[in-house]
Design a binder for these strands. Structure first.
Lengths: 172, 172
DNA sequence: AATGAAATCGACCAGCA
DNA sequence: TGCTGGTCGATTTCATT
């Protein structure tokens, strides 16, 4: 079964440390974790399973270098939609289905969607934009090229604010 | 050593299939991969190592559910900087160091940076914005709340456009 | 680049606090 | 519920092709 997490999980310090390790590198051996967290290998394994069952860990993935595929062109594309066109859920899905579109944000305010588009060159970028415009309900687009991108940190846990951690430590 | 990939890697069909599997789920067993790709387990393993050495696979990570940490508020924050303030690299780094900032895009055009901010509540969001404004060289900010986010697909490989794949298959 | 065998490591289980 | 220790199965490594 896929357990829904609505924020009501209680994690202790050890869990947080564990998550911090595996979020940035899942290849760490049980032994390494065992040493650093001062817990037996079995205990680590037990906690990892629990974190997965609780839905805290949703999966494990290999990170690929976009540059290895020649994907060195990134743009943020703002998309406004005609508001008569019904539900935006379906539109978001259609936008995300366009190949080259990496991420879709559905936003409040004057702009309705923001897309992160990653492609190899200008020609492909043009194709993506044209494909987006052709989608029924899309009004207009405006793109800005990304010169550089920086990840805020190594991930969710490291990125949590102190006050957020406090709340977690308090239990549910 | 960390090998630099500048796009000049040649991947065959098997590599691409392999990457497609492990990018969405690194927990697939060698046996499963061996069956689907019709290759011995050792051969799969050999290729996986090679892909890592070549820098195509940059690492493996556990994906965490932000909701499990109560992180259900997301905003896109546009940041303009005073252009006298020297190099933007340092500024980007400082922005990314603000806890709550998940991603930083350095963009061309009238807006200089776009931040993806993920926090637990409005109060934390305010704190992040204040912290950003306090950074030397930051001029003004404008935030839009994200109501929903959709990943374009299960990742880089699946997301590659057909023409991009063609280029890869051609070798370098 | 791929194979099969040997060594190493991780997954699972029964039992315990 | 969380942990231990041991067993089995999977993965990693290596000599060989």
């Amino acid at each position: 079964m896929s357990k829904q997490t609505t924020g009501d999980v209680d994690l202790d310090e050890t869990d947080l440390e564990l998550l911090e390790y595996i979020e940035s590198d899942f290849d760490v051996s049980l032994e390494t974790l065992s040493d650093h967290l001062e817990l037996s290998k079995s205990a680590i394994h037990y906690r990892l399973n629990k974190l997965r069952e609780d839905g805290v860990v949703t999966g494990t993935t290999a990170d690929l270098d976009p540059l290895a595929f020649g994907l060195d062109m990134v743009a943020l594309t703002q998309v406004t939609v005609v508001h008569e066109s019904g539900y935006s859920d379906a539109l978001g899905a259609r936008l995300s289905a366009v190949s080259g579109v990496e991420q879709v944000y559905y936003t409040m305010g004057d702009v309705d969607f923001v897309l992160v588009v990653r492609v190899q060159d200008r020609e492909q970028m043009n194709d993506v934009i044209e494909e987006v415009i052709a989608i029924d309900g899309v009004n207009q687009t405006s793109s800005r090229f990304v010169m550089d991108e920086i990840r805020g940190d190594e991930g969710t846990v490291e990125n949590l604010r102190e006050d957020a951690l406090e709340a977690l430590r308090g239990g549910d």
